[in-house]
Design a protein around this nucleic acid. Structure first.
Length: 272
DNA sequence: CTGTTCTCCTGTGGGC
DNA sequence: TGCCCACAGGAGAACA
């Protein structure tokens, strides 16, 4: 479910909890991708949430004694709920703030590919985050950097932009979308992409992600923000999920192929 | 090192 | 209606 825009919207939605103290942690099911520390309540109770940052698709919740590293995986959601909210299936973890009944952060994740990890060190040096590529919206992600990376890659351009060591935050939906905007076929070998095309792709990735954040994220299979509000970006997908439907630009049917086990969509006329 | 495949898990939708 | 199968937004691990 969540690509970078959805994670960013989730992070922004949680900011209302900054400066509140944790009063309770409930772990109903600790078996996420990696086990949730069962002593998290001892670590967190009485600690004030200092900041909420993001690196790639990881949300970093900073406390005085360390940081929670949260990833939503494929199907994770964070919601702010009140005490009387009924417990749903797959509501695995609650973090209650300030003993206020309406300030509970609830983690729900049917597939349990997400994670909630505690670190007392610099989270950016955590092994999951240490070798990540640049943020797509930062100035570090520019054509000079990107083209140098592409020259060394024989993998497909789509797999390359989805590689978090090249650039973070480009998931399966936005990879297809960005390649459509840059008019590059997803299966092209990365090192055969020209400087001009690389430049177009950098701009397309930035635009696609920026636009999706503005629109509140994609709501495919019910993404919703921390207050339960839907995003609208799914209404703007040009190729993703549009197999056999007419291309927005030339009316030719959109193709679907599998690259790296993932569905990829493109227009064979507009993308070369 | 690189690129590819496998893996975790549940839910959903299509075909029969 | 139920059953079975394919597939789903991530990404580290294992492997060649």
């Amino acid at each position: 479910m969540p690509e970078l825009p959805e994670v960013e919207i989730t992070r922004l939605g949680l900011k209302s909890l900054i400066n509140y103290k944790v009063s309770e942690v409930v772990i109903r099911n600790s078996s996420l991708r990696w086990p949730v520390d069962r002593s998290l309540h001892k670590i967190l109770i009485g600690r004030k949430l200092i900041s909420l940052k993001r690196r790639g698709k990881y949300i970093l919740a900073e406390f005085p004694n360390g940081t929670l590293i949260i990833h939503l995986g494929m199907s994770g959601h964070l919601c702010i709920v009140s005490k009387d909210r009924e417990i749903m299936k797959h509501d695995h973890v609650d973090i209650v703030f300030d003993n206020v009944s309406h300030k509970i952060v609830r983690y729900n994740d049917p597939r349990r590919f997400g994670c909630i990890l505690w670190t007392e060190k610099n989270p950016l040096k955590h092994k999951l985050l240490d070798n990540l590529g640049p943020e797509p919206l930062s100035s570090d992600f520019d054509v000079d950097y990107f083209f140098q990376k592409l020259r060394k890659k024989t993998a497909s351009i789509k797999n390359t932009i989805m590689n978090s060591h090249v650039v973070v935050g480009v998931g399966n939906i936005y990879a297809s979308e960005a390649l459509f905007h840059a008019k590059i076929r997803p299966q092209r070998e990365a090192h055969k992409v020209s400087m001009t095309e690389a430049n177009n792709l950098v701009l397309a990735i930035k635009e696609t992600i920026k636009n999706a954040i503005l629109k509140g994220g994609s709501s495919i299979n019910n993404f919703f923000d921390v207050n339960g509000k839907n995003g609208y970006f799914q209404n703007e997908h040009q190729v993703y999920g549009r197999k056999d439907k007419p291309c927005i630009l030339c009316k030719n049917p959109i193709q679907q192929i599998i690259l790296g086990q993932r569905s990829s969509f493109y227009c064979k006329k507009c993308q070369q």
